Computed example of a mutant assay.
Amino acid sequence: MSVFIQQLPALIGVVIGALGSYMAVVRGDRMRFRREQTARWEERRLTVYAEYAQSVKKTVTVTYRVAARAGVDPYPDPLSLEEAQPLLAEASIRRDPSGEALLMLGSREVVEKARDWVVAAMEMERFVREGRDDRAAWQELLERQRAGREGYYAAVRDDLGLPPGHSARWPLPVMNPVPPQR
């Protein structure tokens, strides 16, 4: 028998081992790349979800202030509708691009819950722009907005695989409503 034939099983073992090592490294790199890519998209979605929430919340906060001025909300920092107009416009302008990013990157459920929340916020804005002072209607809008917000956050947490969070509903001390300042 020649020396080459005697060495052939060892040579075949080295080739098979090298191919196996190469395949394991390539597969590991692919898996790591996918994990990193998934993590980057999740971070980006979290950013988009948070920016959208902040833009809707801006509208909500301004409407609280105007409603406080009309005497239907106990918010401690009342604001006239005239003073609120630029703030409402700014909130709407900010909400549009964040809404587009949400449509692009958000899951269907998150987008649907975002729509529910923003519709309630827009109805609150319409309420204060019309100068209404119906406390019961305002309370109903507040409840819809709070439920919309809670649904949005629950959908975001579910989409990102986060544990359930706080509902952000805690009792506030009852305050005497501020009389309307017209």
Results as ranks from 00 to 15, higher is better:
35 R>I: 06
141 L>P: 03
179 P>H: 15
34 R>W: 09
93 I>K: 09
165 G>T: 13
133 D>F: 01
82 E>W: 06
63 T>D: 01
152 Y>P: 09
44 R>T: 05
152 Y>T: 02
174 V>W: 15
166 H>P: 15
89 A>D: 15
104 M>N: 12
55 S>I: 01
128 V>Y: 10
55 S>K: 00
119 V>M: 05
141 L>R: 01
116 D>F: 08
112 E>I: 11
85 Q>V: 15
9 P>I: 13
37 Q>H: 13
109 E>W: 01
105 L>K: 04
52 Y>D: 00
119 V>A: 04
178 V>I: 15
162 L>T: 02
101 A>G: 07
96 D>H: 06
62 V>F: 06
2 S>Y: 06
18 A>Q: 04
44 R>Q: 14
57 K>T: 04
114 A>R: 09
125 E>T: 05
34 R>I: 14
13 G>H: 01
118 V>I: 08
77 D>W: 12
3 V>E: 15
149 R>G: 11
50 A>R: 11
116 D>S: 08
55 S>F: 02
115 R>I: 07
17 G>E: 07
70 A>Y: 09
36 E>A: 06
82 E>G: 15
70 A>E: 10
65 R>M: 13
6 Q>E: 14
81 L>I: 12
31 M>W: 10
50 A>S: 13
141 L>F: 05
177 P>A: 04
51 E>C: 10
102 L>S: 05
108 R>D: 09
26 V>R: 15
5 I>Y: 12
19 L>C: 10
121 A>Y: 12
98 S>M: 10
12 I>V: 15
141 L>V: 04
70 A>V: 01
63 T>Y: 01
155 A>S: 05
48 V>S: 10
125 E>C: 03
71 G>S: 11
140 E>G: 10
23 M>E: 01
126 R>C: 08
138 W>G: 00
167 S>F: 12
5 I>C: 11
137 A>H: 03
121 A>M: 11
18 A>D: 00
76 P>D: 00
82 E>S: 13
182 R>C: 06
179 P>F: 14
181 Q>E: 03
65 R>A: 14
48 V>F: 08
51 E>N: 06
101 A>V: 01
30 R>N: 08
2 S>P: 04
7 Q>W: 12
54 Q>K: 08
121 A>C: 05
168 A>N: 14
145 Q>K: 11
6 Q>G: 14
92 S>D: 10
140 E>P: 03
92 S>R: 09
93 I>P: 00
79 L>R: 12
164 P>K: 08
48 V>H: 05
74 P>Q: 00
178 V>Q: 15
10 A>N: 11
108 R>A: 13
91 A>T: 11
101 A>Q: 02
84 A>M: 12
65 R>N: 05
83 E>Q: 10
139 Q>W: 02
75 Y>Q: 06
58 K>M: 10
156 V>N: 07
83 E>S: 10
42 E>C: 04
68 A>I: 11
96 D>W: 13
77 D>K: 14
130 E>H: 06
165 G>Q: 10
86 P>T: 14
87 L>M: 14
32 R>P: 04
5 I>E: 15
155 A>H: 05
61 T>Y: 03
81 L>D: 02
175 M>H: 15
